[in-house]
Nucleic acid binder design. Structure first.
Length: 581
DNA sequence: ATCACGCGGGG
DNA sequence: GTGTACGCGTGAT
């Protein structure tokens, strides 16, 4: 099956991982696989091993094991402490940290389902194979969900999921007094658009329009929407700002009207989680993607309204009606059809954006190895971090802890000096030659071995020494981050080669998105060194990278000028010049 | 310069 | 849920 989502439940006081997938070759059947074989754990770094083992014995923990790992490259003996339940970790970790013989605890802040994916080398949005036996299905409105108990091996096959079913939706509200208030303003339309040209607006009016499906009242409107989602069984349900608007609104209206909206495969309800400044809405089994945070990351605009994003992406205007007057379009017969067309246009636009943008996010999901639900809501720095957490496991490296509040405030505000910029010379320049470095920063990280684990004070060892700052980076062994970026770039080269050798336009398209995702990830790696919440934060690394960058471009410009070129503009990794002989 | 505050998207 | 989280522009001081 294709693995779409993951979580865990507690059965008889023990955690059971649930893998939500679809059998793409077997009629798109939803499957929930239960795996009760995995247990949470953390690491303790002891000051004295035997003493520490002794102290830990007294806490009556599930299991203790001594392991040899590396902590920023340094060989380190750690104690792996297993727990019965993920919830035990926050309960007990402070007591462990405070033990006399414990220098530090690690990997105590990694969500259980993420730990599972990493340790089992399982990748969402790839085919998943496992051995299991059928068990009784969970009660569900989705009647045909199969439940399987995992009895043996579980593994990702490496083949990506393509042809996923996407369903987009969008609601319209009648709000005559300011912003919509779910306590009193009814939902009058829900637009839905699916893969195979399925486009429809559900409403209590508009029966003369061919794309409108008429229902009796608002409650039926909500239930019909739920029915369509269940019936269409999309892999991904997409909205625009649906985390913060559509879903919370629908949920509240459903509660007021007593509508059944148990869309989860396990019969669970739509859940909106408060996440600091933003919400995230989840439906068990179906991956809900809110395109708004995705688009904010994907492009750099002054505003991110659906209209603006659509226009930028496709160069076309979509129907735009004034939000504060939509209720008039509903109330006045002669304007109502326009509102219907607006509703349809919104959901179709959302769908088009989804079709264009999701392939990249699916590749990032596979690369980072965390669920699409999470990836679509993560800042790029977070994506890079979870990618590295997975790599750290593979490399036997201990993951650094998340920065504490004091680390964070100390780091915040410090900023590495940026790239070299020569302001453009005014005027019209002819016969311009352009020069730029390919992947300048990733290349510098690799060639100068810039990594927190190679940064050293040691004057004796052979080092690369950063210009301006004099920071020293060991020439060997190869650092953790440079190794990982090296992997990313060589994978990208391999994929580009494969692209050259392919005539199949479909295959080329897929490969192109893959290399694009790798490029983005590689380029993110440089920036995160200076990102204050990053586990591998290092201002020295961030500063060294840009210092070498400035050094390279200035030297290149100087050389070009010796050959008779004149630079009219330069920025970070490239410059424009005229030839003067 | 420094800090508190509020906003984004949605109708 | 191994929870509780952004980043920037604005106006006031």
């Amino acid at each position: 099956m294709v693995l779409l989502d993951i979580d865990y439940v507690t059965v008889d006081e023990l955690p059971v991982i649930r893998l939500f997938g679809k059998d793409k070759s077997g009629g798109n059947e939803p499957i929930i696989a239960h795996d009760g074989s995995f247990r949470p754990y953390i690491y303790a770094i002891p000051t004295d091993l035997d003493e520490c083992l002794g102290e830990l014995e007294e806490l009556e923990l599930e299991k203790l094991e001594v392991e040899e790992m590396r902590d920023l490259g340094r060989p380190t003996e750690v104690i792996r402490i297993e727990f019965k339940h993920p919830q035990d970790v926050p309960k007990i970790r402070n007591r462990i940290r405070d033990l006399e013989s414990v220098r530090d605890i690690r990997e105590h802040d990694i969500p259980f389902y993420r730990r599972y994916l990493i340790d089992k080398s399982i990748v969402p949005m790839e085919e998943l194979e496992f051995q299991g036996v059928e068990v009784d299905s969970a009660p569900s409105v989705t009647t045909d969900v199969r439940t399987v108990e995992v009895t043996g091996r579980v593994q990702s096959t490496g083949s990506g999921a393509h042809g996923l079913d996407i369903l987009s939706f969008d609601i319209e509200v009648r709000n005559p007094h300011g912003m919509p208030d779910p306590e009193k303003d009814e939902i009058v339309m829900i637009g839905v658009a699916g893969n195979m040209g399925y486009e429809s607006v559900i409403s209590t009016a508009g029966d003369h329009l061919d794309f409108v499906e008429v229902v009796e009242d608002e409650r039926e409107l909500l239930e019909r929407f739920a029915e369509i989602v269940i019936d269409k069984k999309p892999d991904i349900l997409v909205g625009y700002n649906s985390d913060n608007f559509d879903f919370p609104y629908i949920t509240r209206r459903a509660a007021i009207l007593g509508a059944e909206l148990d869309l989860g495969w396990d019969g669970s309800r739509i859940r909106t989680m408060r996440r600091g400044f933003a919400n995230a809405t989840a439906i068990k089994g179906t991956v809900h993607v809110d395109l708004y945070p995705v688009m904010r990351r994907y492009m750099n605009l002054d505003r991110y309204t659906l209209e603006r994003v659509y226009q930028e992406l496709f160069g076309e205007e979509k129907i735009d009606l004034p939000g504060d007057r939509l209720w008039e379009y509903w109330d006045r017969d002669e304007l109502r059809d326009e509102l219907f067309r607006y509703s349809l246009d919104d959901v179709v636009a959302t769908h088009r954006i989804a079709e264009k943008i999701l392939p990249l996010n699916l590749e990032l999901t596979r690369l980072v190895g965390q669920p699409l639900f999470d990836i679509s809501r993560m800042a790029t720095g977070q994506q890079a971090e979870w990618f590295l957490v997975r790599k750290a496991y593979q490399y036997g490296e201990l993951v650094p802890n998340k920065p504490s509040q004091s680390d964070f405030s100390r780091r915040r505000g410090r900023r590495a000096v940026g790239g070299y910029v020569k302001e453009p010379e005014k005027g019209l320049h002819e016969n311009i030659v352009q020069f730029d470095f390919r992947s300048l920063y990733p290349s510098i990280i690799i060639s100068k071995n810039i990594s927190p684990d190679t940064l050293t004070d040691d004057e004796e060892s052979e080092c690369y020494v950063a210009p301006e700052y004099g920071y020293r980076f060991l020439k060997s062994p190869r650092g953790f981050v440079p190794s990982v970026i090296g992997e990313i770039l060589s994978e990208r080269v391999r994929i580009k080669e494969e692209m050259k050798g392919s005539d199949d336009p479909m295959e080329r398209k897929i490969l192109n998105v893959q290399q694009e995702a790798l490029k983005r990830l590689a380029n993110t790696m440089y920036g995160v060194y200076g990102y204050s919440r990053f586990r591998w934060y290092s201002m020295e690394c961030a500063e060294a990278i840009t210092a070498w960058g400035r050094d390279y471009i200035k030297k290149t410009i100087k050389t070009a000028e010796e050959f008779g070129f004149h630079t009219v503009y330069a920025d970070t990794d490239g410059f424009y010049a005229t030839y003067r002989g």
